[in-house]
Design a protein around this nucleic acid. Structure first.
Lengths: 135, 135
DNA sequence: CTCGAAGTACGAAAGTTTTCGTTGACATTA
DNA sequence: TAATGTCAACGAAAACTTTCGTACTTCGAG
């Protein structure tokens, strides 16, 4: 018995290869397979066209992307906004490796990348926003 | 041709199941397979003993854990400190889904978990440390 | 010494992810 | 309209991950 039968359903966490495709869709907006393939080929050991096609078909099944089939060259679009997926991924990482502590994760993130003064300032401003009601 | 032949070599990113085992090792320190199995059984749909054993054997091959075979019940220990692995995982996530921007990741992390006032304070203190020389 | 318990090693199955080749449909143009 | 190029659909192979059953070894009672 498989996971999802047909329609509705929450989108699962994207795999690494899927994320690579999503990155292109988030950047370019709705795109055809060819568009995505070309974009990926730019920054990559190159992945075959049919590989990208297959992945995108699977992603459509998983509801990671929406597909417009009205044109011969189908047009794909990310189902979730980049931020929503980021939340999903962070949430998972938080559980798996940080005992659910966002603070610990933030600390490691800051020391992982040598963070610049400007960035630190940006983050402080963000903290202020979080402080007052916000959300 | 396979990945790693025999010795040396950087440890690869642990998979989800492997991370579950590492969490136990980080918490308890050096442990036998039985120890780990019991700990995991506590908080889990329960995973068979040999499953845990096999995973730990594989992890030893991958250098994710070190193994002391001097006793009949081998004793395993995490190869990397929790923080090092966290760095590894965050680094990967940063590349895959945050275009390398630690700031964006931090922002999402903060909104992912409803962060408490105390935590925000802790983070501010951390930022201060980062600001002055620090590391 | 024999039996059973506790361990490790192996191997293999099942699930998932990644990668493509091939096929057939459709469109463009010579 | 026949040849050429563009696309989607399939199917299947290869690599990884996860899960266990089974067999072999060792050790401590009886």
């Amino acid at each position: 018995m498989r996971k999802r039968a047909a329609a509705a359903a929450a989108t699962p966490r994207p795999t690494d290869a899927e994320l690579e495709i999503l990155n292109v869709l988030w950047q370019r907006g709705a795109s055809t397979v060819r568009d995505v393939h070309q974009a990926i080929t730019q920054t990559r050991p190159a992945m075959g066209y049919t590989t990208v096609l297959k992945l995108m078909q699977i992603m459509a099944e998983k509801n990671l992307v929406r597909r417009d089939e009205s044109q011969r060259a189908h047009v794909y679009e990310a189902q979730l906004a980049r931020e929503e997926t980021q939340q999903q991924l962070i949430g998972h990482l938080l559980e798996r490796a940080f005992e659910g502590s966002a603070t610990k994760l933030v600390m490691q993130a800051l020391s992982a990348k040598q963070t610049s003064a400007e960035e630190l300032t940006t983050i402080r401003e963000m903290l202020d926003e979080f402080e007052r009601g916000d959300k």
